[in-house]
Amino acid sequence: MARIRSDSRSELDLVAILCLTPSLLYVLAMFVYPFLYGIYISLQPKKRDAGIFSNYVAFFNDAYQCNTIKTTFMLALPTTIAVVLVALFLAYGMRRGIWFERTITTILVLPISLGVVFLSEGILGFYGHNGWLNQLLLAVGLIQNPLELTHNSIGVIFSLFMQNFPFCFLMLLGYISGIDPSLESSARMLGAGPWTIFRRVMFPLIAPGLIIAFALVFVMSFAVFPSAVMVGQPAGSTRTISIAAYQQAFEQYDMSYASAIAVIMGLCQLAALVVIVLVRRRMTIATTMGVGKR
């Protein structure tokens, strides 16, 4: 990211401004404006006589709505921890290149490209009550009754894992393999074994990237919608906050209340980001990694 240099002269001429205008106008009109508008209408409740915060008050006073925060959190947090830990182990183990790298990465981007709807449909078939996995386990005799892996929070967490793991793994693999390999060599020459190298050299260098990956995965998981509906139990144990917002908007047609819920969802994500950034700041990383391979 470019740094602000106070002495740098602005190089914005008319052509440059003309080039920037369309996209900037678009982002302002279709992203910034709706955001502000959403906040505005969330403060204009449907009921005429209600106070401006009545939507928010209603949300937090209604356990059915309010619990969606907890529900979403309980789905997003385990998913994120699992995704980040597994991705870290694998990416670290493969930092010096992997066999069939291109094939593996291609297969891994498949779930990202296919999208969540297809994936959920497949999960229902494969891991469902009568799915291939249960049939196999029953046939082998490992279980007596089919495992209930779908239509509950396990299914949702699994679906989120499938979507976010490749994303996180590839990000971390790129990040870790960008760390100069001679740092490891020099640590070895100074007497460090593999575990010491990880703990004292590599982990501190990976940590900043790891924290960003954690933040991205968490925020994405927190907005879970389609998998919560399809492989979860949208009326019960996996009624996430985006389902609540969607229902208000498109089933109750209360855009004001829906916007309020969307704002609350955004604030939760923001809060998580702030916590994560604070954690990152505490791990004093005073350096740029200027020596990595390009």
Binding site: V27, I39, A223, A249, M255, S259, A262
Partner: peptide
Amino acid sequence: PVLLLLYFLPLLIPQMTYGIPLATT
């Protein structure tokens, strides 16, 4: 930098979060 951040936000923020106010608009 402000502009880059502004362009980055729609990629960072989940679509479900800004989708509802966008749809309303």
